[in-house]
Design a protein around this nucleic acid. Structure first.
Lengths: 202, 202
DNA sequence: AGATTGAACGATTTGTTGAACGTTCAGAAA
DNA sequence: TTTCTGAACGTTCAACAAATCGTTCAATCT
């Protein structure tokens, strides 16, 4: 089984190279197979299909990203509010720069989003776990208390959707997006009424 | 000039019928011209091009919609917060039902959004005027006070983007969308911190 | 004169055909 | 037997041709 996993990894690496150089559509299973010194048919012993290879690549990427995010959100000496802020900023920059650097990534994301609609939901659910943990911590240290943490996390995701897929929604450059995200987060944290009270600015 | 406007209106009505029955792409300028008993070339004395006819249709629709919205937001005996809530709910339902009723509308919206990127911004700017007026009123009656009203309106639009183009973002049915919009608006109005203070629930 | 036409123009779309692709599986190799 | 191959299958894609469309403008009509 360790053997099988090693071959899977080899396939993933070969496909990753091809996908990011030539694009998902322009890469053929025969090419990936040749890169791994095997026949096209043999790929199907390791993956159900081409799209599943792309999904495996995306999942590895996502898990690495989530690792970074967990590190960021575990930073001591900062309030939960501060860490939430940094979380969403980092999230936006990460996506923005990745798509800006390599348009092929956008192609892969589009294909997966189109053919596997549930996949994006799975990633969002993963991120919510992290948010809920942050809410728990805020409750413990008395910073703020939320009744339905899972639901609130979902609402924050809804409200920051525009920044999770930055170049899908607007052609704005990163600095403008950052200014907007800043404004939205302030609203989400303080609300409209709090602007009057002017308590706990972000 | 009144004469010219009457012909423009006739063209708009003829095009509207064709666009919503057969779609924008499948409607030809020759057909619209024939419906108006004129030659294709003559259309260009009234509109610069096909897309401008679609834009005129969209603008008329948008202005009618804005009229309804102004009526809604002028309702006395309700707090500004309540009116804001109703505003965004009505906005979402309006779009959702329009696109659900007729898929051709979606095609037209897509074409305009793609070929005239500034058009959507113009509509958003119109809506912001209304929001700013509501903020002014909230300030007058002491409900809440916002420093940069234009910016705050923009931020609220950012945070509710998902609900302005409902079926673009999610395949969720209207009731689920309403529940989500409700949650997001609560966050925007009260913020995270206010959940602890539990003041002025929506 | 100004208003209107419709043939003509380049661009886009449509239709078609052959090649290339993802996937399968009978059989070869180990 | 288990692992792997590569030809075969139906589908999708690419390239080219023909038709159609949006748009223009010289000619026609009022």
């Amino acid at each position: 089984m360790a053997e099988k996993d090693a071959v899977r990894e080899q396939i993933i690496q070969a496909a990753k190279k091809r996908f990011s150089h030539f694009g998902y559509a322009k890469t053929t299973m025969a090419e990936v197979a040749a890169d791994c010194s095997m026949s096209p048919g043999n790929l199907y012993r390791f993956f159900p299909g081409k799209l599943d290879i792309a999904e495996a690549i995306a999942t590895a990427e996502h898990e690495g990203h989530m690792g970074n995010m967990r590190g960021l959100s575990a930073a001591d000496g900062k309030s939960v509010i501060e860490r939430l802020r940094e979380y969403f900023f980092e999230e936006m920059r990460y996506t923005y720069l990745m798509l800006e650097k390599n348009p092929r990534v956008y192609e892969m994301a589009s294909v997966i989003a189109h053919e596997r609609p549930q996949y994006a939901n799975w990633m969002l659910a993963n991120e919510r776990k992290l948010l809920v943990e942050l809410f728990d911590e805020a409750e413990r240290n008395g910073e703020f208390r939320i009744d339905d943490k899972e639901f609130t996390a979902e609402m924050i995701q809804s409200a920051t959707m525009k920044f999770r897929y930055p170049q899908l929604w607007s052609k704005l450059p990163l600095p403008k997006l950052e200014r907007e995200l800043d404004g939205v987060l302030k609203l989400l944290v303080n609300g409209l009424c709090a602007q009057r009270a002017r308590t706990s600015p972000v």
